[in-house]
Design a protein around this nucleic acid. Structure first.
Lengths: 309, 309
DNA sequence: GGAATTATCTGACCAGAGTCAGATGTCATG
DNA sequence: CATGACATCTGACTCTGGTCAGATAATTCC
């Protein structure tokens, strides 16, 4: 069985290097070597500091510098000092650079679309791709606070509601549930956290605060492609950390028996079942967890960022 | 939706080029440049003629020649004349070359295994990989006659039986069915055809002959990863062609209502429902198709090979 | 202020991959 | 056997990606 798994894996990697490698080559065909095109794209996608780009693309500093100079000479990129640290430099696309970047985007999109269009069962194919991509890059899932009324949150919530509708025996309608306002899940009262795998949102959780010491955890969702990677646990740990920063001392949540994996997670991480505390028609089980006030930090540990384990 | 699909596709290709690209690099780490390693591997995998290797790897003839000379100098490869055509040359691994090739195989396998082992839900991941790989290389699925008692057939049949067991309301046991002998599905009486996508068998069909003009089509199966690509239709067309070559004039088959997609295929391609013709307990529906004797071929059309459309 | 660290740049260098034109020997055909 | 097509080889060349050592300037730490 093991050998067979390996055969399948290797077949996959052969298929993908020959086909997707061709996609990569779409960076070409514009008369620019791959290296320059990659740098142009990294900048276009919002990477601004030279060092950041270098790390992202895994380039040597010498090579990086030369590629940048090349793009500068072509008039596609401008370099400026970093405001706070004059050693660093910030790269920005010029108008011509923007145009060129958008051309690459158009070519890449067209190519991807052409490949996708040839396939029946497109949704199944995309789901398989999501699963593989998430598995391969599982270590690079990052948690970021987001606007609960923004696009990423909307994407997650739509998927979350659709899943509830599928799994609840009586279906699910948002309107009938106690839908928190965006304001309750935004700082300073609460928070909304999105887990990103590259550019795909693969999970979320909301912290619905009232300004007082008690807050509710809502909307915990993990994309099917990202299940089994401990992401729910990580989202919960993060939401707790955020709550502590907001001086919240007690967290509550409600859930439904149709979501047994959620109840299991709560039971296994310090939550206690409590009596019903709201009248949400979809809520069946209720949990509470009191979170220790932030202990006196050892010096130099302040300002921890979202990257947990 | 379209844009979103493209985003997902492109995220996939980024994930895969960065991670699987590293797998490709496992060819390295043996002090040999990628080009030579690729040639060595192509030969190890059974490609023998220089031109064939060149086409497969997409190399320029000059480059190819130099890589071969390098491998020859290392004592890994021997070149001999092609028996029938002295312009061509045949490459063969020496004993040392075999050893080196096997080392690469071991490294690749180990690397693949390491990546796989990190993942929970391994089977789901592999299925997703199969689906993606098959979709990407759908044009390169080839049909090959195979030994019905061999490994590839065994793989297909095991998957086929497992699927019947899952889908038949009362389950399925091979022993209770009319299981054809391997001899009945081998030339000159019958045939067994396996569809290969790279090195993975993704479909099969058997032709169970008796030596007479009537034969039965059995064991039509397409791997989940390859469904929706018209492969069943292609397998059926191929089995008909083989039957014609064996001077068979009437084909029969039986099937089960739990497999509606199969019945739909038969109805749509010239098969007529007929009364029960055997006592197989799993058979519920019976079909027959009379296949025209091979028409007088236009000159120069003889010896058509299995590659249909 | 001085030392160590950090971010970037510069110039010199290298190897791999690939291109190209032409050479060589072989085959198929009339 | 002359011709053109074919398979491979050879040598000269380019481009790209990548390494390395050291220069330069700014920042941080003591």
């Amino acid at each position: 069985m093991t050998t067979d798994s390996v055969t399948r894996f290797r077949r996959f990697s052969r298929a993908v290097t020959s086909e997707v490698g061709a996609l990569d080559a779409s960076f070409l065909g514009r008369g620019r070597p791959l290296g320059s095109a990659r740098v142009l794209n990294a900048i276009g996608r919002g990477r601004r500091e030279v060092g950041e780009i270098r790390d992202y693309l895994g380039l040597d500093s010498g090579l990086m510098s030369r590629l940048l100079r090349g793009l500068e000479a072509e008039g596609l990129v401008e370099l400026a000092r970093h405001p706070g640290d004059a050693r660093r430099r910030i790269a920005r696309l010029t108008a011509a650079g923007e145009r060129e970047f958008r051309t690459y985007e158009r070519l890449s999109n067209a190519r991807a679309l052409r490949l996708l269009e040839r396939h029946p069962r497109r949704e199944a194919l995309l789901e398989a791709m999501d699963l593989v991509a998430t598995a391969l890059t599982r270590d690079r899932i990052v948690l970021v606070e987001a606007d609960p009324a923004g696009d990423a949150a909307g994407h997650c919530l739509a998927a979350y509601y659709a899943e509830l509708a599928r799994r609840f025996p009586a279906g699910f309608e948002v309107a009938r549930s106690r839908n928190p306002e965006a304001a309750e899940m935004s700082p300073p009262r609460g928070s909304f956290i999105v887990a990103w795998s590259d550019e795909l949102p693969v999970g979320c959780v909301g912290l619905k605060g009232t300004g007082g010491p008690v807050a509710e955890v809502k909307r915990l969702w993990v994309a099917p492609a990202a299940r089994g990677l401990g992401l729910a646990r990580r989202l919960m740990a993060e939401v707790e950390a955020v709550a502590r920063r907001l001086s919240i001392t007690t967290l509550r949540l409600d859930t439904n028996r149709a979501l047994p994996e959620a109840a299991r997670l709560y039971c296994g991480s310090g939550w206690q079942e409590i009596p019903r505390f709201n009248d949400d028609p979809y809520a069946e089980v209720f949990f509470e967890k009191s979170i220790a006030p932030e202990e006196a930090r050892p010096p130099g540990d302040g300002g921890r960022k979202e990257e947990t384990s």
